[in-house]
């Protein structure tokens, strides 16, 4: 039992990172029905901005995270304006392929600029402390990752439910044309969505760096795909679904490694994607509708 709870803690901190990335996927999908495959790479850029903020500017982790979030928010807006906006009225497959192109562009521009070798996140920026609770082990990094993820999710939820912009976002997500007729600046709302999603990914990137110690230009690929699975699992386009999906996927992976065979971990994650698409394509939190992919 003790071991089970220990594994649950491990799963939660892994899932928190998935959940933060999944939020960006799901928000963008909710607004413009685009699977933004470059999202994992924005997380990577965020991790690098955080890295340079700590090493070059000597800031602490919190400032580095803020810095990364701001930079990536701007990056997200630029990517949308340059790559996706011209294709807004094209087929969805055209936009999807462009997203994959942007993903490769970000990865290899970083390889070109900074080299493909990994960089070590400065360990003294966030010294590890281990806490013992009657046989359970928890590090301050677990708490850091889970708490910041939950905090950012609450802020996001409040923003979407309570502010005018949030209301506008919901309106655009429901019906773009109608929202536009009601006087909502759709372009502006799409930019805001990309900014917020990218900022959350950047936060996840800095957490990843702090948590696992190293970053490299291709680090965004696997977490990006896993977060996509998480978003679909919860119901793509549904914000609480992305959070739940992220945590569930993290816990599932941990349990498969911990109690089954460590080699089936990824198979289980992708197996869940196939299962959910077969049984309930709208995701765990999705409502019945035949339209969504």
């Amino acid at each position: 039992m003790l071991n089970f709870i220990q594994q649950l803690i491990n799963g939660l901190s892994l899932g928190a990172i998935y959940a933060l990335i999944a939020l960006g996927y799901t928000m963008v999908y909710g607004i413009i029905k685009l699977i933004n495959f470059a999202h994992g790479d924005i997380m990577m850029v965020g991790a690098y901005v955080g890295f340079f903020s700590i090493t070059l500017l000597g800031t602490n982790v919190w400032v580095a995270m803020l810095f990364a979030m701001l930079t990536c928010a701007v990056l997200g807006i630029i990517i949308e304006k340059v790559a996706y906006k011209p294709l807004r009225n094209s087929t969805r497959i055209a936009a999807l392929i462009t997203a994959i192109g942007v993903s490769f562009f970000l990865e290899y521009i970083m390889v070109f600029l900074l080299g493909a070798t990994q960089r070590v996140y400065p360990a003294d920026a966030f010294p590890t402390q281990t806490y013992h609770f009657s046989g359970l082990l928890m590090t301050n990094k677990d708490i850091f990752v889970i708490a910041s993820a939950v905090f950012l999710m609450i802020i996001l939820q409040l923003f979407i439910k309570k502010t005018r912009t949030g209301k506008a976002m919901r309106a655009v997500s429901l019906d773009q044309d109608a929202a536009s007729l009601m006087g909502i600046n759709v372009n502006h709302i799409i930019s805001v969505t990309f900014a917020i999603g990218s900022a959350l990914a950047a936060a996840a990137g800095v957490m990843y760096g702090v948590f696992y110690g190293t970053i490299n230009p291709l680090m965004g690929m696997v977490p990006g795909i896993k977060a996509f699975v998480a978003a679909v699992l919860g119901g793509i386009g549904i914000i609480p679904g992305a959070m739940a999906g992220g945590f569930l996927l993290g816990i599932l992976e941990t349990m498969v490694s911990g109690y089954g065979n460590s080699l089936f971990r990824d198979a289980a994650a992708y197996g869940v994607l196939i299962l959910i698409l077969l049984i309930k394509p709208t995701g765990l939190f999705g409502e019945k509708s035949g339209e969504k992919i």
Binding site: N10, E253, G258
Partner: peptide, 20 residues
């Protein structure tokens, strides 16, 4: 006897299993 794949960064679940 457990395994990981290159690129993995999270080993805690399997390590706990090995510890057992």
């Amino acid at each position: 006897e457990e395994g990981f794949t290159s690129g993995d960064r999270d080993f805690r679940a399997t390590l706990n299993k090995i510890k057992g």
